[in-house]
Design a protein around this nucleic acid. Sequence first.
RNA 1: GGGAGCAUAGCUCAGCUGGUUCAGAGCAUCUGCCUUACAAGCAGAGGGUCACAGGUUCGAAUCCUGUUGCUCCCA
Length: 884
Amino acid sequence: MEKTYNPHTVEDKWYHTWMSKGLFTSKPDERDPYTILIPPPNVTGVLHMGHMLNNTIQDVLIRKARMNGKNACWVPGTDHASIATEAKVVAMLREQGIKKSDLGREEFLKYAWEWKEKYGGIILEQLKKLGASCDWERTQFTMDEHYYRAVIRVFVDLYNKGLIYRGMRMINWDCEAKTALSNEEVIYNEAGESSIMYSVRYEVENDKNGIIIATQRPETIMGDVALAVNPMDERYKHLIGKIALVPFINRRIPIIGDAYVDKEFGTGCLKVTPAHDVNDYEIGQRHQLPVIDTLSADGTLNEKCELPEFYGIDRFAARKLIVKKMHEAGILVEEKTFTTKIGRSERTNTVVEPRLSEQWFISMKAFSQRALEAVENNEIKLHPAKFKNTYRHWMENVKDWCISRQLWWGHRIPAWYFPNGEMIVAETIDEALALAKKKNPDIKREDLRQDDDVLDTWASSWLWPVAVFDGFENLDLKTGKIAKKTQDLAYYYPTNVLVTAPEILFFWVARMIIAGYEYMGDMPFKDVYLTGIVRDKQGRKMSKSLGNSPDPLLLIEKYSADGVRAGMLFSSPAGNDLLFDESLCEQGRNFTNKIWNALRLIKGWEVTNQTGDKGNQIAIEWFDSRLSQVLSETNDLFEKFRINEALMSIYKLIWDDFCSWYLEMIKPAFGQPIDRETLNQTIHFFDTLMRLLHPFMPFITEEIWHLLDDKNKEDSIMLASWPKANTVNNELLSIYGAAQAIIIQIRNYRKTKNIPQKEMLALYTSNQNTDLSECYPIIMKLCNLSAIEGKTNNIPNAYVFVEGETEYYIPMSNDIDLEAEYERINKEIVYLEGFLKSVTNKLNNPGFVSKAKLEIVEMENKKKADAELQIALLRKQLISLQSN
RNA sequence: GGGAGCAUAGCUCAGCUGGUUCAGAGCAUCUGCCUUACAAGCAGAGGGUCACAGGUUCGAAUCCUGUUGCUCCCA
């Protein structure tokens, strides 16, 4: 056997074996299902550390469930990610010198699909390297034909139910890409940008002074519909209700009072331009003001601005122009430079324009109620639970959801418009035409024009838990209910766990819950495990632009998939950010090597049919108990979704308890054989440990499992059963704990006195009739003792220590350093006296004795007695040292 | 501006209904060791006023109030 474990061939071998045997596939049967749906990564994505963490956790859960005898089904897939993908395709085309607008919709989509076919599957392929046991035959894409149909049908259904409506809304508009942007796609430079505040005088009817407003955007004044001041502002109070005139075009607009206006900011007087600012829009709504939209989609001024010289002029050129014009007219009172935050498009970096446009909305309030309750009363559990607060806050203040996007890549909104402006919502153009003909028999197919917009990505992924099982095929549009569940849907829904990032708790998780209750009348999943964000060592979020994210595949190359999986899990409690450090993967890799070497040790032993010594028997009994103990702990931790702690306890069980203690205890002397019984037990333990570890480190556990004994080649540890705990012998564990303490004392003695392990020592004890005597063979073996004997007479030159109520003596050679011994024992006594004092104080406190629980008081009494005894024993030893 | 969360060893974090799981784990550090499975290792050690200030209590890392510092979400 190789001295170090070589994972590369092993990992490839087993992944292929698992795949070719179809061990990942799941079909409904009589077993209980255990289902996880992957949060579909964007097709544009390549695997990053966040995916690594997220999918490792899912794989751990699914493999554990499979071993528990569940019918485990992990459904993989990808999200079409409308904005992100479209941006990628546009950029790719641009490099080839092709403009999206020149292509037209059909042509562009062809390119987009090509792109998707080529790159869309990369991330899933990468997941295989990680060992992900997804049922790849179920791989889904949110724009698969059946999925597309589902999204459209749900749109029609919600429209029929009156939950979808069209409305005006201020959106973030990218004038270059000519598309709406979500808030997330608008980037603000933290430091701010330099801008100019212009103070402009407006004439006011019947007031010779006029009024001075402040604005950063003078090119929008032609869209003004009012001026606003704070009603409490003494300077302007008298002007409220009067009429001002918009410069150059002399539109008559009212001066209104609105508390929104900040008296301190600018001149304290605000021009209200509802079409071009969110706050202005809201003021306009409050005061029933009209909306005058002077900007076209490409950012140029249009005829609404009433000044022909500005038609078709870009907004920034228009700004310069109007400033000049105002200057000439003598109404520009002041120009002042200041710093402000300007929103820019993430994609094109152009200044984002607030723009009023007609959009589609889902009204959320009514049908999100059930989703709120479900989390409130723990029908759906969030892990960690602290996210409940966040969830509640959002759900209680839920706003209507704008679902239309001015893009081509995505699910096109199924609304058809007639020439007269009327509209019909239907799944297909044929249905739309049929409906249209009822209203107007003369209408023809060519007369119908489909809405140009597509749906928000989340408006497809929120259907994921139902759509991956084809649930919407049977959505009856007459009743708005799923008429019949497919076999898969009936079996796998609700799924068990969703593992995802907290930042999409609302975008995705909450909406899946809403859709789940709306269409299935049931939750989409029972538990939600929220992972943290993977950050670098300095706490910065890992990102491409910072270049601080390691390439996961290179990491796997370097540390093996098992090593990286362990590394990801070692320090990532649910919901806490993970400060990723490559050394964690190293730790994981070292662990695989440790396991490998434990196998090498066992494999190197010759077997004898003679019976083993007593020490082996007690070692076996002890480890069996310890194993059962950790197993119950682990099961408990799994139930609480404390995955990292589960791994850590198994890690310690294998490294410390099994390798450092157990194997050392039973290890035969060099060249000696081991008895068959002990070897068989040891192999059995090793087998159990591998099964315990398998969900975390699937590859090496499979390899070792096969090498341990003659397994049937067809078997896989993937399908082996999760270990069952035996009864834990607590008494034995505590006896063993004492034995360990003694061993450590003796090792310590060797260390401080520089006595090599090879040199045999003798140990004397004041009390030989303890339960501990069972462990003597082990203590002798691990400490290389010649004997452990009862002390009959005084041992003059001895190193002494106290464990429990017993004194132990190691006779020392003549060059004993009395001084040092004296000091060591004295130090011990001082510590114990301090301890005793605090315990005594407590017991002397009448409040404590009368009010504390009885067990607590008893415990303190015992502590006191123990401490007193130990002090007495050490004092005795001091005296004997002195008499020396 | 509104909301939520966090602060414990050098780092990452456990610490449940206040009391032997009470100050703990892993990593890192230091000191010995190439001891026949493993130096990707073994054996041992050191290290914390539990952010600060009050309060409740016989008893507070834990409960309450305030202060400071950080993080996230929404606007």
